[in-house]
Amino acid sequence: MTGHEVEQEETVPITSNDDVVRARQTVRTYAQQCGLSLVDQTKLVTAASELARNTLVYGGGGRMRCAAVRRAGRVGVHAVFEDRGPGIPDLDLALTDGWTSGGGLGLGLSGARRLVDDFDLHSEPATGTRVSVTKWKR
């Protein structure tokens, strides 16, 4: 479905607050190498920070895969956040601004979606959640 070539890939486990910092630093490195503008780097790293925290807090931990990708002559950064947590029962609700099942502001998922170009959310009860995002170089 994503239909892009992967040029370089890295996996970061997300099992502690430290790992959330490490995940966003990894995404920042890829965004810089890919040549994203400063604003786009900032948007992507911020989205990654929100999603990595969700993986830890709501998914009970998991991992992030970050990759440099190419599609139809464009280069970009792709990041996938996966957990084997309880899943999200109502995806539409989870993507609503201000809705939270925890103690957050409810801006993590909905905000992250606005900050990236491609956003894909897949979740099943008792199986886990996978969120994929891509930011393309302009």
Binding site: V39, T42, T46, E50, A112, R114
Partner: peptide, 14 residues
């Protein structure tokens, strides 16, 4: 606050 941070925060919804 950096300009890119301000732009991102507003888009995030904060």
């Amino acid at each position: 606050m950096r300009p890119a941070v301000a732009i991102t925060l507003v888009e995030l919804g904060l």
